[in-house]
Amino acid sequence: MTLRALLPLITACLTGFFSCAAMADALHDPTGLWTGRLVTDQGTCDETRDTSTFQIGSKRIAFTPADGSIALRGVPEKDHAHYHAEALLQQPSGAPFPMVFEAHPDGETIVGTYGTPRCRAHIVLKR
Rank of each mutant, 00 (worst) to 15 (best):
Met23Asp: 10
Phe63Glu: 08
Gly32Glu: 08
Met99Ile: 09
Pro117Cys: 09
Thr44Asp: 05
Gly115Ala: 15
Met99Ala: 08
Phe101Asn: 05
Ile61Val: 14
Thr40Ser: 10
Thr116Arg: 12
Arg118Pro: 00
Pro117Trp: 09
Ser19Ile: 10
Thr48Lys: 08
Phe18Met: 13
Arg73Cys: 06
Arg49Ala: 13
Gly57Arg: 13
Glu77Ile: 06
Ile10Lys: 14
Gly115Leu: 13
Cys119Pro: 05
Ala66Lys: 11
Thr31Gln: 14
Gln42Ala: 06
Arg120Trp: 05
Val100Tyr: 02
His104Leu: 08
Phe101Ala: 06
Gln55Arg: 15
Asp106Val: 10
Pro117Lys: 12
His28Trp: 02
Ser69Gly: 04
Val100His: 06
Ala66Ile: 04
Cys20Lys: 13
Asp50Gly: 01
Trp34Gly: 02
His84Thr: 10
Ala22Asp: 13
Ala103Thr: 09
Lys59Gly: 03
Ala87Val: 01
Ser93Ala: 11
Arg120Asn: 10
His28Phe: 02
Arg37Ile: 07
Ser52Tyr: 04
Thr35Ala: 11
Gly32Phe: 08
Gly36Tyr: 06
Ala62Asp: 03
Gly32Met: 09
Glu77Pro: 00
Ala22Thr: 08
Asp41Cys: 01
Leu89Met: 10
Trp34Val: 01
Asp106Leu: 10
Leu27His: 11
Thr44Trp: 01
Ala62Thr: 07
Gln55Pro: 00
Trp34Lys: 07
Cys119Trp: 11
Asp67Arg: 14
Phe17Cys: 09
Ala26Trp: 06
His104Trp: 08
Asp67Thr: 11
Glu108Met: 13
Ser58Ala: 15
Leu38Thr: 02
Ile56Leu: 11
Thr64Phe: 02
Thr109Gln: 13
Gly112Leu: 12
Ala85Met: 03
Ser52Arg: 06
Asp29Tyr: 05
Leu89Pro: 00
Pro117Thr: 11
Leu9Trp: 07
Ala24Met: 06
Gly94Met: 09
Leu89Phe: 00
Met99Pro: 03
His84Asn: 07
Cys13Thr: 15
Leu88Cys: 01
His82Cys: 01
Glu102Pro: 00
Arg118Gly: 02
Ala85His: 04
Leu38Arg: 05
Pro76Cys: 13
Val75Leu: 14
Ile61Met: 06
Arg120Glu: 12
Glu77Tyr: 10
Met99Leu: 15
Pro117Val: 07
Ala85Asn: 05
Thr35Phe: 00
Thr11Trp: 03
Ala62Trp: 02
Arg118Tyr: 08
